[in-house]
Simulated scan of single mutants.
Amino acid sequence: MTVQPSDPAVAAFVAAVNAGDKGAFLAALADDATMSDDGTDRDLSAWAEREIFSSNGRMDVEDVSADGLTLTATYTNDTWGSMRTRWAFTVTDGRVSHFETGQA
């Protein structure tokens, strides 16, 4: 059963990933958004293309923190298969300004 994120910016991020919608994904992000994967800063654009859009990435959210900014999800893409992941978001002015992801 998929849990819906309570923060609107995080919900938009997850919906965009699951729809494979690059435009909606970019709209959910602040213009200067950053990210890290397993503790290493990554180029967000290159990472998203490789891990989400060209590999059919999708998130099945299992749990969301009380503030709506941290979630646990089964993340699946055509490259790596499925893995349990943790996502932590920073939201600024209604858009994701930073996110951290990694194995949970």
Rank of each mutant, 00 (worst) to 15 (best):
Q4T: 15
Q4H: 13
D7C: 08
P8W: 11
P8D: 12
A9Q: 03
A9W: 00
A9F: 06
A11Y: 02
A12Y: 11
F13P: 04
V14S: 01
V14I: 08
V14P: 01
V17R: 01
D21W: 06
D21H: 04
D21T: 10
F25Y: 12
F25R: 00
L26W: 14
L26S: 15
A28R: 02
A30Q: 12
A30V: 06
D31T: 14
D31H: 12
D32S: 14
T34S: 14
T34L: 11
D37T: 09
T40A: 15
T40S: 13
L44F: 06
L44V: 04
E49F: 07
E49T: 14
R50G: 07
E51G: 01
E51S: 14
E51T: 14
F53T: 12
S54K: 08
S55A: 15
S55D: 03
G57E: 02
D60Y: 07
V61L: 02
E62S: 11
D63T: 09
D63Y: 07
S65W: 05
S65R: 00
A66Y: 03
D67I: 06
T70G: 06
L71F: 02
T74G: 01
T74M: 10
Y75V: 08
T76P: 05
N77H: 00
T79Q: 10
T79I: 11
G81P: 11
S82N: 09
S82T: 09
R84F: 03
T85P: 01
T85R: 13
T85S: 15
W87R: 00
W87K: 05
V91G: 02
R95Y: 00
R95N: 03
S97N: 07
E100N: 12
T101H: 00
T101E: 01
G102E: 06
